[in-house]
C-alpha cells in the first residue's frame, strides 16, 4: 500500500474548528472592549489573528498528514509544530474503532482509531476518511492484526 493522504474535505472540518476556537479565544478580548478597557479594533484584530493562525495550522496539518500500511506496521506521519512519525507494529494492535463525530457526520467524513497497549501512543487516530473508507480500513487492520498473530500483545 502506498502512502495515503486524508480526504481534502477534512480541511473544512479543521477550518471550522479553527473558527470556533478563534471565537472562543477572542471572547475575553471582546468582553474587555465591552467594559471599555480596550479600543474598538482590538477584538477584531484578535479574532482575525487567531483565525489566521488556526486556518494556517489546519492547512499545514492537512499537508503534513499521511499514513501508510506497511507489511508489518502502520506508519503515520503528522504534526505541524512538532512533527511526529509513529510506527505501530500490526502485532501490537489491540482493537480498532471507526467513529463519526457530529461535525464529521456533517462533512460526510469518519475517522479510524487504532488502540495499542502502549502508554504514550496508546490510541492513534486517523481522521479524514470517508465512512466506507474508515470501515474498510478498520476491517483491513483487524485482518492484518489477526494475521500478524501476536500471542501476547502486552
Amino acid at each position: 500500500m502506498t502512502t495515503q493522504r486524508l480526504h481534502p474535505r477534512v480541511r473544512a472540518v479543521w477550518v471550522l474548528r479553527a473558527v470556533v476556537a478563534a471565537l472562543v479565544l477572542s471572547a475575553p478580548v471582546a468582553v474587555a472592549f465591552y467594559f471599555g478597557y480596550l479600543p474598538r479594533w482590538a477584538p477584531a484584530v484578535a479574532g482575525v489573528g487567531f483565525l489566521l493562525i488556526g486556518v494556517g495550522h489546519a492547512i499545514l496539518r492537512y499537508r503534513r498528514w499521511s499514513y501508510e500500511i506497511r507489511e508489518d506496521a502502520l506508519y503515520l506521519d503528522r504534526g505541524v509544530i512538532t512533527q511526529v512519525r509513529t510506527t505501530v507494529p500490526l502485532v501490537r494492535i489491540q482493537h480498532v474503532d471507526s467513529r463519526r463525530g457530529p461535525i464529521e457526520r456533517g462533512a460526510g467524513l469518519a475517522s479510524c482509531v487504532v488502540y495499542t497497549a502502549g502508554s504514550r501512543g496508546a490510541d492513534v487516530r486517523i481522521p479524514g476518511l470517508t465512512p466506507t473508507g474508515a470501515s474498510d480500513l478498520r476491517e483491513e487492520l483487524k485482518r492484518l492484526a489477526i494475521r500478524a498473530d501476536g500471542e501476547d500483545a502486552v
Partner: peptide
Amino acid sequence: RIQNVIDSRTV
C-alpha cells in the same frame, strides 16, 4: 516489549 515507536521533531 516495544508497543510502538514514535519519532518526533519539534520546531
